[in-house]
Design a protein around this nucleic acid. Sequence first.
DNA 1: CAAACCCGTAAGAAAAATCTTACATGTTAT
DNA 2: ATAACATGTAAGATTTTTCTTACGGGTTTG
Lengths: 109, 109
Amino acid sequence: MYADVFDAIAHPGRRLILERLRDHEQPVHALADQFEMSRPAVSQHLRVLLEAGLVRERRAGRRRLYRLEPTRLAEVHGWVTQFEQFWQARLGALGRFLEENPEAPEAGA
Amino acid sequence: MYADVFDAIAHPGRRLILERLRDHEQPVHALADQFEMSRPAVSQHLRVLLEAGLVRERRAGRRRLYRLEPTRLAEVHGWVTQFEQFWQARLGALGRFLEENPEAPEAGA
DNA sequence: CAAACCCGTAAGAAAAATCTTACATGTTAT
DNA sequence: ATAACATGTAAGATTTTTCTTACGGGTTTG
């Protein structure tokens, strides 16, 4: 029924659109203004996201407001998490060091 | 330096390859036997994964063993996690209901 | 009503992805 | 040395993606 979510988020521009929709719904032209992308291109990307179930559309007068529909991202999260223990094992060395040395200053803090 | 990780995992076949490499390193022909894909196709997908930094190559005699290099998946995990609170809020309602009503029959069970 | 606005979509071009076949290279076995 | 094996890669065809321009249908404004 839905298009492939992994495919939908493969395009950098579509990821940017999702990020912009993270907090507020937005009409198409507002998105097109933020990116260096023509308005039809944004429309077409929105359709891909719509078919993937990653956004929803709401009509308001002459505008169409798009909002994030994040539930399907759980599918990506789930797939990646299947590998989490493996990269945690690699990145974990630093993490354990910090846990066992609470007085050590954290980066960026 | 690296190719786009999101792009690399967009192809279903490449995701299958990564899953097969999750536990053990494997030579190319072993992977080609598992999937309905020609051996050159597997080689080409492995190159994409290699350029994305998702696998590593080790030469052993006439074979080349590929193993998972999972650290770059953390990038995907990080991006998706940026949206986690939003889908958790949505999926959370059902989860809490089930926790508070242990006797309620689950769908499909 | 007329003009301005918001938007989707068709058409077509250009670029990228994907697969197969054929070939070349290096390795192991007999 | 010869044959069998393991693999990468080039070539080429096919399909898919992505973008722009052009157009048309609704909606709001003046």
